[in-house]
Design a protein around this nucleic acid. Structure first.
Lengths: 121, 121
DNA sequence: TCCCATAGTTCGGAAGTTCGGAACTTCCGA
DNA sequence: TCGGAAGTTCCGAACTTCCGAACTATGGGA
């Protein structure tokens, strides 16, 4: 297992972030991590809505989020802890994450990911 | 040539918008349309930075932007006029477009699309 | 009216990406 | 040392993107 790659704050790219969050599953995962106080194991997110996501897909989703700079992952024994990198992303792209998560939340009855109503700061 | 499809305001989807703007070329095209006062012919955007975009790719980029609900296209004789649907998107997803365009603009010296500094409202 | 130029679209193949099952690695407890 | 749990890697199938070539629609002469 190769070491986990995390981009430096100054290397965050808008296109990577948008691409990562353009997938409703990933947006839901990210919203969950936000909501859960920035710590979460992968397997605990193995369903989004009522859909089961296979482990391999999940692993890939986390990788995309991580390499976009949206989350920081650390191995803790056999588990992975995932923190949202909200402050770093916010510092570089003010308002971006909030408006994206709000957009998904505001989509209403479309089976889209829920709003992380809490304020992450 | 089939008629142009434009989603209704209530059918706008966050994931489609993010996907459309996750491509730096498309984001640059959209920023150009914003900047140019909401009217623009396709061919006038055939380069982004110093890169030439083939007609077929361009046509496809416009289609993606159109079907995401970001622009409205009308045939005027042999040309196409493209308007940004800023107000409609803004009404549904407040702050989203602004923060995305700002994110790209704030990326700085990375060859990314420029900011539409004007206020579109 | 016919022909040509211009502006965009569609088609189709090559290249790349995503998805997900199976096998693998790593870590921990018994 | 074994077994189970949590993730990752591998790889084929399905999907998407890119772009040149062929096509369609419109307008302007002659």
């Amino acid at each position: 297992m190769r070491p986990l790659f995390h981009p430096a704050p100054e290397d965050l790219q808008a296109s990577a972030i948008l691409h990562a969050l353009a997938d409703p599953n990933r947006a839901a995962i990210f919203a969950n991590i936000m909501r859960a106080g920035c710590v979460e194991a992968c397997a605990s997110l193995a369903t989004v809505g009522d859909r089961v996501i296979p482990k391999s897909s999940l692993s890939n989703h986390f990788k995309v989020l991580r390499e976009a700079g949206l989350i920081r992952s650390e191995r803790h024994g056999v588990e992975m802890r995932n923190h949202a990198r909200w402050d770093e992303v916010e510092a570089r792209f003010p308002g971006l994450l909030r408006s994206i998560l709000n957009a998904y939340a505001g989509e209403g009855p479309r089976g889209e990911p829920p709003l992380p109503a809490s304020d992450p700061d």
